[in-house]
């Protein structure tokens, strides 16, 4: 399959969205709202619940399933409040020694005047900065679209997992083609060149595991094992490993 087809597939309606994963992994999920600073962003869902016998904090970027839901969730593009809600819940997770699971599916951070003026850049920067030092395990999963900085803001983790049919890219192939060649028709060339598919990213050492889509039950078991493993690490080692995980990127 062409890489661009994977991008298009990752955007299709009818895929599992963050809610599906949350319902499967954490059936007793309790949702929490608000960033305590400005508002509540419906593009980001956050809360706590049991992953089997382990209490976890789960944060997901939700796109919605139909047009009405998609509008309600801002098409899965988070405002600064969304990233700040995520960070607030992660800090809470740190306090109560709960592991954090991030489920990422976004075409990118919300693009608009208000988002800019409320500090979209600062919100993402804060997440990267604080997550690098969050004293509890973090596991991130790209389940559909991994759009640029808006997705990265929930991926400063101990491990980044990715669905086989998801993509994770520095820029959308369309924007890339438009910027470099002034031609959106060349999006497929851009997609091919950007190394945005799970196998390519795995080969580059940027993600840690490729997951088979569809079978949520075995995925849940794998996540449980991973979280147990991370929980078993001393915090100093966990943070050093997290530092090195990103430190080695590109060198």
């Amino acid at each position: 399959m062409e890489d661009y087809e994977i991008v298009l597939g990752a955007r299709k309606e009818g895929r599992f969205t963050a809610v599906d994963y949350i319902c499967e992994f954490v059936p007793d999920f309790v949702e929490f709202h608000g960033d305590r600073l400005y508002g509540d962003d419906s593009a980001v869902i956050g809360g706590i619940g049991y992953l089997k016998d382990v209490p976890v904090t789960v944060i997901g970027i939700e796109k919605g399933k139909n047009t009405q839901e998609r509008i309600q969730h801002h098409f899965g593009s988070a405002h600064p409040e969304g990233y700040r809600k995520a960070l607030r819940l992660m800090k809470q997770a740190e306090k109560f020694h709960r592991p954090v699971l991030c489920i990422v599916d976004t075409s990118g951070a919300f693009c608009g005047i208000e988002a800019e003026e409320r500090g979209q850049g600062r919100a993402i920067a804060d997440n990267l900065y604080e997550m690098s030092d969050l004293k509890t395990p973090i596991l991130s999963m790209i389940v559909g679209e991994g759009g640029s900085g808006g997705a990265l803001a929930l991926c400063h983790s101990d491990a980044i997992w990715m669905m086989e049919d998801a993509y994770f890219s520095v820029v959308s192939p369309e924007s890339c083609a438009n910027i470099l060649w002034k031609d959106i028709q060349k999006a497929n060339v851009a997609a091919q060149s950007l190394a945005l598919t799970a196998p390519k990213l795995y080969k580059l050492g940027l993600i840690d595991k490729i997951c088979k889509p569809g079978d949520l039950k075995s995925l849940k078991e794998e996540i449980y094992q991973q979280i147990q493993y991370l929980k078993g690490q001393r915090i100093e080692k966990l943070l050093d490993d997290r530092y090195m995980r990103f430190r080695k990127v590109g060198y």
Partner: peptide, 13 residues
């Protein structure tokens, strides 16, 4: 590609 995006994470840490 993603190597450059993840520089954001690397520098932030």
């Amino acid at each position: 590609g993603m190597i450059s995006l993840m520089q954001m994470s690397k520098v932030s840490a």
